[in-house]
Computed example of a mutant assay.
Amino acid sequence: MDKLIEKIQFYYDTILQNAPAFLIGLVVLLVGFSIANFGKKFTQNKIKSKVKNTLSGLFIAQIISGIIKTITIVIFLDFIGFQGITSKILAGAGILTFVIGFAFKDIGENFLAGIILAFKSPFKENDLIESEKVIGYVKELRIRETIIKTTDGKDVFVPNSQILKSPLINYTIDGFLRNEFMLGLDYSSDLSNAIQVIIESVSKTDGVLLGAKKPTVVIDEFAASTINLKVLFWLDTFKSSSKSYHLAIRTQVMKNVLDALTENEFSLPYNIIEVKQYKG
């Protein structure tokens, strides 16, 4: 306890003796952090104009900013008279790296994963991706995590190592996104005619792709009261990455299908539950 008090007293006396240098050191600290922030923005803007994936530029800018801030802190400590501390930091860098690497291995793992993601570029900003059941749009790649805006508006911070080690689904990398929905028809329905009506209705909806990505209808199951059909169609995500855009087309498709089936007198019944009572 006495040694701790002596060290505190030593640092206090050192600060008093070097008061002018301490004030100058604060100025150096503020200037250094300002340069780091400016350098971060400058690097982002320069790299954005030269690379396709803006997330890589942001990640590199964060690393450069972190290095400048670290150097600034070391200079500040040296400037105010704590040369012993900076010397020990530099001398013990190897041991410190080992200890930190062991204690914070998850942070180091996420950092390395971030570097790989930044240069491998499996996704870009605003791409719709899925990782470990988290589905959303990529907003930012940070040193430790990737920020994903889910389709219901939540901001999810996913560790970079999780994205790297788990299966990653990118729904927008090739510009195609498939939508689907289910509907049930009465067992007495003419399925061939119904499928034809559905396909024609979906195909006429603006935003739905045709040709090789034309709409498809398949029989999914024979339920208790209905024959369930699965309707599948494709959208061009290069036109818009907005979830509201995709949902608007999906809504219009479902409305058109319902109108077409009703117009052609097809029945879409509810599930029927038969309750029997037996007298004991």
Rank of each mutant, 00 (worst) to 15 (best):
E125M: 15
G101A: 12
V231S: 09
I147S: 00
A248P: 05
E109Q: 12
L232I: 15
Y187K: 14
L55Y: 07
G25H: 10
N193Q: 13
Q62L: 13
A224K: 13
G66L: 15
T72C: 04
N193L: 10
P122M: 00
F42C: 06
Q17A: 15
S242M: 13
A260L: 10
K149F: 09
E125P: 11
D206E: 15
P167M: 03
I8D: 01
F123T: 09
V27F: 12
Y187T: 12
L55N: 06
K213D: 07
V217H: 10
I60A: 05
V156G: 12
S87G: 12
I47L: 07
N110Y: 06
E125F: 04
T146Y: 15
I116D: 02
K40G: 12
K41A: 05
V275I: 15
I8H: 03
S267E: 13
Y137K: 11
T70E: 02
L235M: 07
P215D: 00
F222E: 12
I227S: 10
V51S: 07
N160S: 04
L23G: 02
A19P: 08
G92F: 01
I249H: 00
S166I: 08
A36Y: 02
K133M: 14
S188P: 03
T226N: 04
K41E: 05
W234D: 09
M1D: 10
E200P: 10
N170I: 02
K279C: 09
I47A: 04
S240G: 07
D236N: 03
T205C: 13
T72Y: 04
A224E: 15
G57L: 01
G39H: 01
I107C: 05
I75C: 02
D206W: 07
V156A: 06
V31Y: 06
D236K: 02
G184S: 00
M182K: 15
L185V: 10
D127N: 10
A21V: 09
D152A: 03
D127R: 02
D127V: 03
Q9S: 15
L261N: 05
S161N: 10
H246T: 11
N179M: 07
T14S: 07
I47G: 07
I63W: 01
I24Q: 04
A113R: 06
L29W: 03
L164M: 05
I198L: 05
F266A: 11
K149G: 02
E265A: 14
